[in-house]
């Protein structure tokens, strides 16, 4: 029982500290000082830096989705509507979730390791001693970059995924290109686009804020940095999947 109480207390304390960080992020975004150079650097590191992995993920996911859907649809003689399935799946679910998971792996681990190393070598304390708030200097630029760049990466991933599916559909499934693009457009509604754009905003915030929280609270030397890195990726990925369900349910109620 004491073990359970201790675990619950620790969990509640982590939640409390995370909420406090979110409050500090809110203040950091809405009041001076702003560190514009760091913001631009993080947009580049998180956005441009993640482009390759997102392009590869999106392209191959779209391609394999077209292959698998083609086989299933063949059983009903409906191979020509493969584009409908691809567009709905990529834009509403696979694009946002896979992009977010890739960003959680690449960016979440990087942020936790970088901030964790700074924490265990007293660099965060040195920042405070020199009159800089580490949340404003380190966390705010990263969270802003996550909020903006994860949706941008998702749109790119969606497009590349559909492009990958188009190549497979035309070359392997032998469906005419015009039929594919018509079915893509037919199946997409404005609500789907909204869903595909709203979800990554929340994912971006969750991944980066969790990584910052975990990184800045790192203790225990290099071993602690390793644990923080793992924890940031696991917690970020789980948060993406849980948020995906909650936001999807909410948006279906609100939009459709």
């Amino acid at each position: 029982m004491p073990l359970l109480t201790g675990w619950a207390k620790k969990g509640l304390f982590e939640v409390q500290e995370y909420v406090k960080l979110c409050g500090a992020l809110g203040r950091g975004v809405t009041s001076r000082p702003f560190y514009f150079r760091d913001i631009v650097e993080q947009f580049d590191a998180i956005g441009v830096g993640s482009l390759t992995v997102v392009l590869l993920t999106g392209g191959f996911t779209g391609a394999v989705l077209a292959l698998q859907s083609g086989m299933t649809l063949d059983q009903f003689g409906a191979r020509s509507v493969v584009g409908r399935l691809i567009s709905a799946s990529m834009v509403k679910e696979l694009g946002p979730v896979l992009t977010a998971l890739m960003v959680a792996g690449r960016v979440g681990s990087g942020i936790a390791a970088e901030l964790g190393s700074m924490a265990v070598t007293d660099q965060l304390n040195a920042l405070r001693a020199l009159g800089t708030d580490p949340v404003r200097k380190l966390a705010v630029p990263r969270v802003l970059a996550g909020l903006v760049m994860v949706p941008v990466l998702t749109v790119i991933s969606d497009f590349i995924g559909i492009l990958g599916a188009w190549i497979v559909t035309v070359t392997q499934l032998r469906v005419a290109s015009s039929v594919f693009w018509n079915s893509i457009v037919d199946a997409l509604f404005i609500q789907d686009i909204w869903m595909g754009l709203i979800k990554p905003v929340f994912f971006g915030f969750a991944i980066v804020s969790i990584a910052c929280h975990v990184g800045m609270r790192t203790t225990g030397g290099t071993q602690g940095v390793g644990q923080s890195t793992t924890y940031a990726v696991v917690a970020g990925s789980v948060a993406v999947l849980v948020l995906n369900f909650v936001i999807t349910k909410l948006l279906i109620t609100l939009l459709y």
Partner: peptide
């Protein structure tokens, strides 16, 4: 001014 253990320089 503060001089930290090991310096704590920004690497």
């Amino acid at each position: 001014g503060m001089v930290f253990q090991e310096g704590a320089l920004f690497d």
